Amino acid sequence: MWISRQLGRPVFKAWNAALAGTRWTKGVPAGTPGRIAIPVAADSDASRRVAMRLVDDTGFDPFDAGVLADSWRRRPMGPAYCTELTLDELGPPLAAADRARGARIRDSMPERFAALGDAPTREEVVEMNRAARR
């Protein structure tokens, strides 16, 4: 929201809830079973529609995550952050996001990452992120 005010332009938020390795390797055509969903937030419907088309074009199902003020729900270590969920799976974790719990989980991440070793795989990081919510 700060960036939008500084630029005087609409801004949307997408892709930040996916690992770089996910973005590079997991994009598939629309309709592919198990296609990963990316939450998209923007303050205008028009901006959100443009962003959702871009997400779809990059091989992911766009999920309408509402306005930028609600985009904290997919911040680092939230229940939908870098967990490679499908469109059907993404809504409940976004709705269940809790700021205080997310901060506690985020603060535990250095220890969790250290336990993965020097070169964790994308799969290990995704599983670690999913396990943090169990």
Rank of each mutant, 00 (worst) to 15 (best):
L90N: 01
A131D: 14
G91M: 00
G102P: 03
A42Y: 13
G66Y: 15
C82F: 09
L116M: 11
L87T: 01
T58H: 14
Y81H: 05
A115V: 08
D118L: 15
L7E: 08
P29V: 10
V126T: 13
M1F: 06
V28D: 02
A95C: 04
E124G: 01
M52G: 02
G66M: 13
S71F: 15
G66I: 12
L68N: 07
D118K: 12
P92I: 03
P39W: 08
G78N: 06
A96W: 05
L54P: 00
G59S: 08
P39G: 11
P10T: 07
L54I: 14
A46G: 10
A69M: 13
P120Y: 09
S44A: 06
T86V: 02
P110M: 08
R53A: 14
W2E: 12
V67N: 09
R48N: 05
A30F: 04
A100D: 15
L116F: 14
G31L: 12
W2H: 05
R133V: 10
L116H: 09
P79M: 10
W2P: 00
I36K: 03
L94F: 07
E84S: 00
T25R: 12
A80W: 11
R9S: 13
L85T: 00
V125W: 10
V50Y: 13
G117Y: 15
D56I: 07
A80M: 04
D64R: 01
R104F: 14
G34Q: 03
R48C: 05
R5T: 13
